[in-house]
Amino acid sequence: MASQGTKRSYEQMETDGERQNATEIRASVGKMIDGIGRFYIQMCTELKLSDYEGRLIQNSLTIERMVLSAFDERRNKYLEEHPSAGKDPKKTGGPIYKRVDRKWMRELVLYDKEEIRRIWRQANNGDDATAGLTHMMIWHSNLNDTTYQRTRALVRTGMDPRMCSLMQGSTLPRRSGAAGAAVKGVGTMVMELIRMIKRGINDRNFWRGENGRKTRSAYERMCNILKGKFQTAAQRAMMDQVRESRNPGNAEIEDLIFLARSALILRGSVAHKSCLPACVYGPAVASGYDFEKEGYSLVGIDPFKLLQNSQVYSLIRPNENPAHKSQLVWMACNSAAFEDLRVLSFIRGTKVSPRGKLSTRGVQIASNENMDAMESSTLELRSRYWAIRTRSGGNTNQQRASAGQISVQPAFSVQRNLPFDKPTIMAAFTGNTEGRTSDMRAEIIRMMEGAKPEEMSFQGRGVFELSDERAANPIVPSFDMSNEGSYFFGDNAEEYDN
């Protein structure tokens, strides 16, 4: 993207840094990872977990959730003011799984939030270390993106479920800051804005008074975040219109849905970061690795190297396929839920299948599930090659597409044709070009129609051997075009429920 120079890199967003050079960025990201790792080690000690239990991804998720809940100030305040039966607002906890007599047992633990905050700050040299908290939120978000298709949420806001490739980060909490905003897809931002506008339509006082002023500035800020994701002048001009509207209503909703559809071809720039579970960072720190000293990046080879040398386990339900569970977590670790499966298959070195073909449910185990038949197995999170994460949407291309997802959002900077089903997408653009945004709409449609099938995206960008740390010898991959490109292809993934 041309304006790259004016933006802070995501590592800076990730670490609240002012302008830093590459070495400083690597050190501050490393410091953040160190903090998460030290916190995780301490929690495993508190909970008396064995090494194996500490490497269980379900335990990692519970521990991450506990610290996120302990620092969720708004919710904590709300819980104190609106006490609900049987919930102690000062405590947080969740299921911890232990191996007892050759069987997995679930144990519900409860801790004072104050105590968890103390352990977290102690692991982070006394700081609140917001960057580390956001990092864990993005890992949870990436896992949700890989596990669930947001059909219901899309339909509720009037969008087409086939636009799911635009929904990265749709389950990120509001408090995820600049680093969170960077990884949100165009569809996620559109959905947040539509929800806001709908509230304004239904509630006369939404934009009024002292609160209304705050609401208005939040609305304009979200519009600017979305505008910054678009790469064409016409899309940005249309966002200006939406932002400046005196009284946002149905016309703005129409414009936003139009823009979301246009992003299936004229893709937005959305950041991709490899955020790993805390149970990967903990053992690495415990083994003596100093992330701050060595430096770390979320968008280069580092996460690949770390996963190459990590042992992570997962509980497996009786009829689940461990290899499929591994694929789910591998995609989440690489922030690749909406990437082209052919690119992923090449990088991973084994075939990556669409969601609907995987015999696996989510990673988390519900409290009512029976533990008797639970097994555990090693997650295979290694890769054959590594590639640089991208934040450009890439230019655009036609490809055989599917009944489910009709476009992709690249996660890796790797040369390819970008699949999208042009006739299906263009069919949504018939007729409606009147109104105050008509010239911009016409211009956007013209650009979409001009998108050429034979153009290559990320020209000359390749993948790298894991021994090639400096990215000196790019390998331009070859793809098996007979395979499906979309992950949520004609899909039956479970729906995400809060």
Rank of each mutant, 00 (worst) to 15 (best):
T6I: 12
Q12E: 02
D16C: 07
Q20L: 12
E24I: 03
K31T: 02
M32H: 10
G35D: 10
G37K: 03
E46W: 10
E46D: 06
K48D: 08
L49Q: 01
L56S: 15
Q58W: 07
L61G: 02
I63M: 02
D72E: 06
D72F: 03
R74A: 00
H82E: 08
A85I: 15
R99A: 14
V100R: 00
R102S: 15
M105G: 00
E114Y: 04
E115H: 05
N125A: 02
G126W: 13
T130I: 08
A131P: 12
L133M: 04
T134I: 04
M136E: 07
T147A: 08
A153S: 06
C164W: 02
T171N: 04
R174L: 06
V190T: 00
M191G: 07
L193I: 15
N202V: 02
N205I: 12
N205W: 12
K214P: 09
K227T: 12
Q241L: 03
R243F: 15
G249N: 09
E252S: 11
E254P: 12
R261Y: 12
R267H: 13
G268L: 12
G268W: 15
V270D: 05
C275S: 05
F291H: 13
S297G: 13
L298A: 13
P303A: 05
N319E: 00
A323Q: 12
Q327H: 07
S335C: 04
A336W: 10
D340P: 11
D340H: 02
L341Q: 05
R342C: 05
R342G: 02
V343R: 08
S345M: 07
Q364L: 01
A373D: 01
L379P: 14
T390W: 10
G393K: 10
T396P: 15
R400L: 15
M426N: 13
T430L: 06
N432P: 01
N432W: 00
R436F: 10
R436I: 02
R446M: 04
M447R: 09
S457D: 06
V463E: 04
F464E: 01
E465I: 10
S467H: 02
S467L: 14
A472I: 08
N473V: 03
S482G: 09
E484P: 14
Y487T: 11
F488Q: 11
F489S: 13
F489L: 04
D491W: 03
